[in-house]
Design a protein around this nucleic acid. Structure first.
Lengths: 122, 122
DNA sequence: CTAAATGCAAACTATTTGCAACGAT
DNA sequence: ATCGTTGCAAATAGTTTGCATTTAG
C-alpha cells in the first residue's frame, strides 16, 4: 500500500460520485502533483481486481469507479447523464429463474429521465 | 442506400455471430477491397441509430453489432468468451415493478460458463 | 445537378506498457 | 540488497473526423 494507492482510494471513498480515472487523476494531482496517470490506471485496475472498489463499464464512455462493492444497480439519465445508485433487488435470482442458467455475474446499466430533467421537459 | 452500406448490412444479416466493426470491415474488404474503415464505422453508427441493427457495448471490448433488433438478452462465457443470445424474459417490467422507476431502456451483459467449458473444467 | 456518402489519413480518447529510477522492507 | 511500485513517455486499441472526390437520386 503505497501513498499513491492510498491517495487514490481515499479520493474514491470520499467522493459522492462515480468518478472516471481522469477525474481521479486530476484530484490526485491537487494533492500530489507528481502522480502519473499510469499509476492511477494501474492502481484502479488492481483495486478493482481485489474488489476493494468496483469498475463500472458504460457504453461509449470511460469506465467509472464505485466505492460501494456491495450489490446495487446503476441508472443513468438520458438527458443530463447523471449516474445514480439504485438499491439491489435480487436480479440475479430472477434471471436465473427465468433463464434456467447459472449466472456468475452481470453488468447492467439502466436508462431513464431523472426528476429534474422531467420538470424541464414539461 | 449506397452499395457500401448495403454490403455492411448484408454481412451483418448473414452472420450467425455478433461481429465487431473490425471483423465486418475485413469481410467487407474481401468483397470490395477499396472500402474504408471510416465508412464501416459511419454506417454502423447510422444503422444502429436508425435501429436497423443493434449496437452491443461490452466491458473492455470493442462494440459488437447484432442483426436482431427485437428484444433478447446476451450472455458471455467467462471461459471461452463466446457470446450467445437468450430469449427475452420481460426484464423491463420486472425492473420497473421492483424500482418504481420508468425505464427507457437498459444494457445488460450476463456472465456464465457455457456447457462446453463446463465439460472441460470437470 | 446537388446533397450526401466515400476513401484516405490524421486526430482523438481511453488505456496500457516498457523501462529506468525510487522506495519500502 | 531486493522486489515491487512509480513517473515518464511512447505505444496501443477502438473509433471519429476533415476534406477533397465520387456517387446516388
Amino acid at each position: 500500500m503505497t501513498k499513491q494507492r492510498q491517495l487514490i482510494l481515499d479520493i474514491i471513498r470520499s467522493s459522492t460520485d462515480h468518478m472516471t480515472a481522469e477525474e481521479i487523476f486530476f484530484e490526485a494531482k491537487q494533492i500530489q502533483s507528481s502522480i502519473a496517470v499510469g499509476t492511477v490506471y494501474r492502481n484502479l485496475g488492481l483495486m478493482a481486481e481485489a474488489e476493494e472498489i468496483k469498475r463500472l463499464s458504460m457504453p461509449n464512455a470511460p469506465d467509472r469507479f464505485d466505492k460501494t462493492t456491495r450489490p446495487h444497480e446503476h441508472i443513468i439519465c438520458e438527458h443530463c447523464g447523471k449516474l445514480s445508485d439504485l438499491p439491489a433487488f435480487n436480479l440475479k435470482d430472477y434471471i436465473e429463474k427465468q433463464t434456467g442458467v447459472e449466472i456468475l455475474g452481470y453488468d447492467l446499466n439502466l436508462r431513464y429521465v431523472c426528476d429534474d430533467c422531467k420538470k424541464i421537459e414539461a
